[in-house]
Design a protein around this nucleic acid. Structure first.
Length: 513
RNA sequence: GCUGACGUAGCUCAAAUGGCAGAGCACCUGAUUUGUAAUCAGGCGGUUGCGAGUUCGAUUCUCGCCGUCAGCUCCA
């Protein structure tokens, strides 16, 4: 039951509760309506709304308990917080719990170990070790990005370590030094160097190293360099929150008049990239935050430019007032995975500030120096986090083009191993990541292992197949349903799926006995 | 970083009230030659995360450190 009370009445009711009194004191003198809710013997101070009484909450489950700081301040006392979830219908509760279960089943930390993709070691907390299979996964994604960016982008590599003078120019030294890894310079005895936490300053140094004509713009530098951010230890979590990572980072130097066109291109580029993984994205437009650099005129121009560009794409987007970066407005890409979870991945950020700080310029048509506008762009965010999302999105069962191992060749008996080796070689020659498992284990054992490792295709080779130069294909998850096809046809089918980046395996290639 | 829980073989997990630490899988050896999700037998494998303290004795109790997890905070 809701009741609106006066300031003094509220104070009287919660006289034994110092925390509630503190909260009430915040409203002193304001016209905030103070409300309480009562259910049975329990009365709480709350803005609401609440359900009328707990009979509405028949379908609930307690989830977990944890400490939480009073008002989110780590210097304040810790309160016990109990998490629970409640739904109007049992089915809804079940569906929600099922989704939690499903998330657990797909946990990239568990699958990463089971599928032999990566590991962590206490000697380098927050930094992944990538196994051969995991490295293959990264490289495959990387190759795809390189292909997409081959024509219009200039891929560069810049140092990882910089003198603090650079970070003073960029402004990181003052505000973000605590989150940077500092390195001792033995000649000065000071921590004068730091590992880069982002790429932009180094890109600006390269840009500024020579004169640029307006004809070169937009100039797009992209990189996959390693970055380090010294996250607090308690924040680390699997691949989603790390200290060392790589971004598919890009900085675009351009004229104001080119913003709309560029943003449209970038948006299409990013959405197309997600689609290759079966991910759909929604767009968010974030405007000037309260704490920001630059003049209002600059922000007006930047927001107008970005907004017009966004409108020109014809795509729907959500407005997030005040959520922009301190140096400029941005478009964020919110991706939804196969079980309906949302992840913020890509971003397009307009920046008038850094070109100023780094005194960047290009020579215009009028033969005068002009300040370029800067766009920061990331597609996957970090590779580490993106791979974590992909692992959970696919539950480890990657489409063929992404799979670290695409085909496992299984001879039925030892005497077929030489032929199976030749088949493996033929698959590899066609650019297929194929492995031979000719251990003298039973066929069932080896099939089980290939299924467990989520290899998309098993090519079983018995006497009949060896004689006909065919393979008996078993598809991941398809059980006993096998299909015997000529080796050539199988090669054609797999290479085609790889080339087209098919998300699911193709329909049977038809008769090829 | 803060609060709490946890850390046992490569992995998943048992057990131990302070008194010789165990299984399955993996790995190795041998036998088996397999037609679509675990063949059989034997073997190897541990200062119970690290370091101190208490104790006749610590894997167990205490303290510190490292890491992981759940949250909080943070995320340029």
């Amino acid at each position: 039951m809701r009741e609106e009370v006066s300031q003094s009445e509220a104070k009287k009711r919660f006289v034994d509760d110092p925390l509630k009194l503190e909260r009430l004191a915040d409203f002193e003198g304001s016209d905030e309506i103070i409300s309480t809710y009562t259910d049975g013997p329990f009365t709480d101070l709350c803005k609401g709304p609440h359900v009328p009484d707990t009979s509405y909450l028949k379908h609930f489950k307690l989830l977990h308990a944890a400490g939480a700081y009073w008002r989110g301040d780590e210097r304040r006392q810790m309160l016990q917080r109990i998490y629970a979830t409640a739904w109007f219908k049992q089915e809804d509760l079940d569906a929600y719990l099922h989704r939690i279960e499903e998330s657990k089943r797909r946990d990239h930390r568990v699958l990463g170990k089971a599928l032999d993709l990566f590991m962590f070691h206490p000697y380098s907390p927050g930094a992944a070790f990538w196994t051969e299979r995991g490295t293959t996964l990264i490289n495959t994604i990387n190759e795809y990005l390189r292909e997409l960016q081959r024509d219009d982008y200039k891929e560069i590599m810049t140092p990882l370590l910089y003198n603090k003078a650079l970070w003073e120019i960029s402004g990181h030294w003052g505000v973000y030094r605590d989150n940077m890894f500092l390195v001792l310079d033995k000649e000065t005895g000071e921590h004068d160097f730091a590992l880069k936490p982002m790429n932009c300053p180094s890109h600006h140094l390269l840009f500024a190293s020579k004169k640029h004509s307006y004809r070169e713009l937009p100039l797009r530098y992209n990189t996959y360099d390693v970055l380090h951010r010294n996250e607090v230890s308690g924040a680390l979590s699997g691949l989603t929150r790390v200290r060392q990572f790589r971004q598919d980072d890009c900085h675009i130097y351009l004229m104001e008049s080119q913003i709309a066109d560029e943003v449209r291109r970038l948006t299409q580029f990013i959405l197309g990239y997600y689609a290759a993984f079966g991910l759909t994205a929604s767009l968010k437009f974030a405007t000037r935050p309260a704490e920001r650099v630059g003049t209002d005129e600059m922000w007006d121009a930047a927001e107008r430019g970005l907004r017009e560009a966004l409108d020109a794409t014809g795509l729907p987007y959500q407005l997030k007032e005040g959520d922009g970066a301190f140096y400029g407005p941005k478009i964020d890409f919110d991706v939804m995975d196969s079980i309906g979870r949302h992840w913020q991945l890509g971003t397009i950020q307009l920046d008038y500030s850094q070109p100023e700080r780094f005194d960047l310029s290009y020579t215009g048509e009028d033969n005068h120096a002009h300040r370029p506008v800067l766009i920061h762009r990331a597609v996957s965010g970090s590779f580490e986090r993106f791979i974590a999302i992909l692992i959970e999105h696919f539950a480890g069962a990657f489409p063929v083009w992404l799979s670290p191992e695409q085909v496992r060749v299984l001879p039925i008996a030892d005497d077929l191993a030489p032929h199976a080796a030749a088949v493996t070689a033929a698959l590899r020659a066609a650019g297929i990541r194929a492995h031979l498992d000719d251990r003298s284990e039973t066929l069932n054992y080896r099939i089980r292992e290939a299924e467990t490792m989520k290899v998309p295709y098993m090519a079983v080779i018995g006497k009949r197949e060896a004689e006909a130069n065919s393979v008996a294909i078993r598809e991941r998850g398809a059980g006993k349903k096998q299909e015997v096809v000529a080796l050539d046809a199988f090669v054609a089918r797999v290479t085609n799926e790889i080339r087209t980046r098919a998300l699911s395996t193709a329909a049977p290639v038809g008769a090829a006995q």
